[in-house]
Computed example of a mutant assay.
Amino acid sequence: MAATTTIERDVVIAAPASTILPHLADLHRWVEWSPWEGRDPDLHREYGGEPGAVGSTYAWKGNRKAGSGDMVVRRVEPHDVEIGLRFTAPFRSSNTTAFRLHEVPDGTRVVWTMTSPVTVTSRIVGLFMNMEQFVGGDFEKGLARLKALVEP
């Protein structure tokens, strides 16, 4: 089995999973909370498939800050969304990102995970950048935006 690296962050949102899930599964709605929104005001977006359904897609192409890539929804269940995430620029990588929703006394704990293969490129990038802190910080920002969007 190939070596992988995993980055994970979580937040508790005072709302039921059924209220949160559409914001995660429908890729059109990511513009409302994604930590990467605003990096390129001229970002080109392209969507495909039925919003919020398995097989729906989102592709983007932007400036150096936004990069380019695509996502495909692989699984949507009441407490689980899995997305295939592929970057094509500024570097190439294929990842799996998942959201797990766990009911807790104060609402729903949302766990955002990204699993990536360890490659030569990721090892080189790792020499210059702490991906755990870099991507983890983006996840924290995105989850905070999602929480602010969803909570009453």
Rank of each mutant, 00 (worst) to 15 (best):
R29H: 07
R29F: 01
R29C: 00
R29D: 00
V31P: 10
V31F: 05
E32Q: 07
E32W: 00
W33T: 04
W33K: 04
W33Q: 01
S34H: 05
P35Y: 04
P35K: 03
P35C: 02
W36V: 08
W36Q: 03
E37F: 01
E37H: 07
E37C: 09
E37Y: 05
G38N: 10
R39G: 09
D40M: 07
D42Q: 13
H44C: 13
H44Y: 11
H44P: 12
R45A: 14
E46G: 10
E46K: 12
G49W: 04
G49F: 00
G49R: 00
G49I: 05
P51G: 03
P51Y: 02
G52E: 05
G52C: 08
A53D: 09
A53P: 02
G55V: 08
S56R: 02
T57N: 04
T57R: 03
T57L: 06
A59R: 08
W60R: 11
N63T: 11
N63S: 12
R64L: 14
R64K: 14
K65A: 14
K65Y: 12
A66K: 02
G67C: 06
S68W: 07
S68L: 11
G69H: 03
G69S: 08
D70M: 13
D70E: 15
D70N: 13
M71T: 10
M71P: 01
V72E: 13
V73Y: 04
V73K: 02
R75H: 11
V76A: 02
V76K: 01
V76Q: 01
V76N: 03
V76I: 08
E77P: 06
P78R: 00
D80Q: 07
V81N: 05
E82S: 09
L85V: 12
L85E: 06
L85M: 11
L85T: 05
R86V: 12
R86C: 13
T88Q: 15
T88G: 15
A89P: 13
P90E: 13
F91S: 15
R92G: 15
R92K: 15
R92M: 15
R92S: 15
S93H: 10
N95T: 11
N95M: 15
T97N: 02
A98L: 09
A98R: 05
A98V: 09
F99R: 03
F99V: 01
L101H: 00
H102P: 07
H102I: 12
H102S: 12
H102G: 11
E103S: 09
E103F: 00
V104D: 04
V104G: 00
P105M: 10
P105Y: 01
P105I: 07
P105G: 09
D106Q: 12
G107I: 00
G107A: 08
R109F: 05
R109Y: 04
R109A: 02
V111T: 00
V111E: 01
V111M: 02
M114E: 03
S116A: 12
S116R: 03
P117H: 08
V118R: 05
V118E: 13
V118T: 11
T119V: 06
V120A: 14
V120P: 03
V120M: 13
S122W: 06
R123G: 15
I124P: 01
V125S: 03
